[in-house]
Design a protein around this nucleic acid. Sequence first.
DNA 1: TATCCTTACGGAATTCGTAAGCATG
DNA 2: CATGCTTACGAATTCCGTAAGGATA
Lengths: 311, 311
Amino acid sequence: MNLQQLRPVRETVRCGFNLTEVARRLHTSQPGISRQIRELETELGVPIFARAGKRLLGLTEPGRKVLPLVERMLENAVNLKRCGDEFALQGHGTLTISTTHTQARYLLPRVVRDFRQAHDGVVLHIHQGAPQHVAQMLRSGDADIGIATDILTSYEDLVTLPCYRWSYCAVVPHGHALADGQPLTLERLAAFPLISYDAAYTGRTHIDEAFRQQGLVPNFIILAMNADVIKTYVELDMGVGIVASMAMEGRSAGDLVAVDASHLFEGNVTHIAVRRSAFLRAYEFDFITQFAPQLTRDVIEQAMHSAEPAA
Amino acid sequence: MNLQQLRPVRETVRCGFNLTEVARRLHTSQPGISRQIRELETELGVPIFARAGKRLLGLTEPGRKVLPLVERMLENAVNLKRCGDEFALQGHGTLTISTTHTQARYLLPRVVRDFRQAHDGVVLHIHQGAPQHVAQMLRSGDADIGIATDILTSYEDLVTLPCYRWSYCAVVPHGHALADGQPLTLERLAAFPLISYDAAYTGRTHIDEAFRQQGLVPNFIILAMNADVIKTYVELDMGVGIVASMAMEGRSAGDLVAVDASHLFEGNVTHIAVRRSAFLRAYEFDFITQFAPQLTRDVIEQAMHSAEPAA
DNA sequence: TATCCTTACGGAATTCGTAAGCATG
DNA sequence: CATGCTTACGAATTCCGTAAGGATA
């Protein structure tokens, strides 16, 4: 058996069973891929892929059983390499974070600054995307650490740790009727055209839920993907923005005013996640602890090695 | 990286860092071993073994970190192969049980008979040894399933499941003073020369403990490794035997009489164990369930995938 | 001096890419 | 006929065992 034979198998599934594309992705020839797959199949004694004539259709029953083991194997190989690198490169390395806009824009800068100071040999990649994209990057091994709200909790192969709780605030232009110092209510909010996050993002469900429970129908006129866009439209006086409160920290001095709305909507919890079976390098532990101080190395390791809280 | 490079590393540790012996054990040449180790070290970029000149002394610090990953990798390779075999051989295969004498002699026969009936293509190996030997065979991958009392509980890489509780009985020749129908007491027992298990076996600690707590000093004249030996000496009228009660089931009709002692000594629990990261074939689940009906496939899988009950 | 690891070298086996073949939508 | 997988073949590489070398107890 050979690790060379495993990569094509994993990639074939990811590429929708098109060997030509697998070859392209793995930078090798298509017959090579074809052969390695068949070699593994002969060695294991079972067909992994279902074929119609010369075309691959999907996984066979043994294939479905074998695939997770193949993936585990490949992940172990990466872990082994990483473990070596940690000592070999002594603090140098790469760290890929996948996260949503809100985190990347408002929470990470401080953490990243401190992290760079402590680990100036580590090259940091920060990917930004929708929460489910974050999860996918983590699971495929394209990212080491994922930071997002909610969504990450549902995957068994990820370990998801709560970091902190946050809530929303309304954003209005200076002198707006809602900035009169009176406490905000859902009724008052619903009277204005609203601008907030698109449904796929940042716990929008909690916003909708709050209005629904009060029997109110909010008038969302723009659904944006991040707070910067929302604020831009608010500045154009197109409506009242509802954004994560950290997007307005230290911003009330500008043209916009933040009005606390934490009592109106259920709070969201930002989570940080890693692959359960990943080998974390020392600086990865450091990063996580810097992002959420209560998540010390011990806490993280314990969470990774313990089971799901009721699967 | 290559699986060929990993095996020598694991074996080197097991052989006490003697490459010549590693080569012998892996049926290859010594320079080959030497090279593969160095190749892996170069690829990882760190030395795995500490060397004094040309001699290997032990693991380096990176080596200690790398070793468990190497072992996991090799185990995964075995799992993958097994997974294939399960489909390819359709019910054929091998099952290696490592267990203590008491289990092998008195409990397993019934289970093995039923198992063979259900899986006549599976070749069954039954190894017998001391409890710690059982654990060792399991951990090294030389056995698939281990059955023993107590000891197995302490390893993190093993999943240990309780099967049933048992206790002791005294064994005396027909017409012996202790076979008078009166309930047995520790005092009465201590008055006779005793024959029981060697300290390394089958929960001897509970026997010693019971006497100690009553301030009695039992007079053990023979410490044997299994009940058959003990019974032989009892038949020669050399003393009173104390054996696991299942060793006397359906035996009171012979020359020997069993006298219940379950109220005198704390009960022992027989455990069944597998490697936590093993891939269990269908017939392995079957075997376990046949040995302990409450251990269904679901129960076993849940235990394997969940964490230790407080590490 | 015996043990034990490394280096050197050459033959064997494996690997891999190109080119051609063939089935299918 | 375009796409997609397999087969065929030859070059390049890798692998591996034998033999010699050198260090250490």
